[in-house]
Design a protein around this nucleic acid. Structure first.
Lengths: 136, 136
DNA sequence: TTGTACTGTAATGATAAAAGTTACAGTATG
DNA sequence: CATACTGTAACTTTTATCATTACAGTACAA
């Protein structure tokens, strides 16, 4: 799983939840997360592609949630930021002359798939709204 | 979760399972995995600390499983290699002046803990022996 | 009792991935 | 048309990962 992108995305979405329906600037978001605004925009761009946020260009532009926080689940955020697989699948290039090396990646893949399904089920139980409820 | 260490450890343990009760050298393991022997020894050192393998120094030395493959579970391997947490916890240093930034790491932690419990339960169902059974 | 084949680990260097920074074109708004 | 934003590309810096070299320690076996 990718290092800190999940945390950054959840942080962004949490701030947008508290901003209600306001268009929030990447500068402001970057200030709370304490990272570079360009990184925030990249992450927003990804969240946008996955239908979680909307952005508006131009003066008084910014971003906001694409749907109510009660309808956004942590599993969606996970799906949005994942790129490598959960446990680091397919990074090595085992020796194909070895009977184990030749087949292990396939077997690891199916192990990972099962584990990831369980993880998604768990994250799918928590909505952004519930998560934000913890701040009160 | 750490990139490829889980895969390397499972690969090592699989090779040791097929080696039956032989002491297997790090050189041989490195050949199948196609990585550097020193990295293998480091990973073996970690697996040893976690009680999963035994090593013998000196000529005709090497490593073998510390217990039968039916009694080693993927959850143990996961626990052995994890260092950072699952989803990249605690990497950012959010702005403490922001009410969200100030508390988000705690809330993320509890989210991660729950998700990880589920993941461990899933990996705990698969023994090394079962995993190795797939190669036949 | 000495050569050999291993482990264990530290130190260093190379490569790759992640994050920060600068820069600037594009776009709404007033 | 000035302003305050977004969206991206290009470049640099930082950090993490992996490979390599080196060598001390250990057990076996001739």
């Amino acid at each position: 799983m990718n290092s800190g992108r999940f945390a950054i995305s959840v942080h962004i979405l949490t701030l947008l939840t508290f901003a209600e329906d306001e268009w929030t600037s990447s500068e402001y978001l970057a200030g709370s997360i304490n990272i570079n605004p360009v990184l925030v925009r990249k992450e927003l761009s990804n969240l946008r592609e996955h239908g979680l946020v909307l952005s508006k260009e131009g003066k008084s532009g910014g971003s906001k949630l694409a749907k109510p926080a009660g309808q956004i689940f942590m599993s969606e955020v996970y799906e949005a930021v994942k790129q490598k697989d959960l446990l680091g699948k397919g990074i090595n290039s085992p020796n194909p002359a070895c009977p184990v090396g030749r087949k292990i990646n396939d077997h690891l893949d199916s192990l990972y798939d099962d584990a990831e399904k369980t993880l998604l089920a768990s994250l799918g139980k928590v909505s952004l709204a519930e998560f934000c409820g913890k701040f009160n």
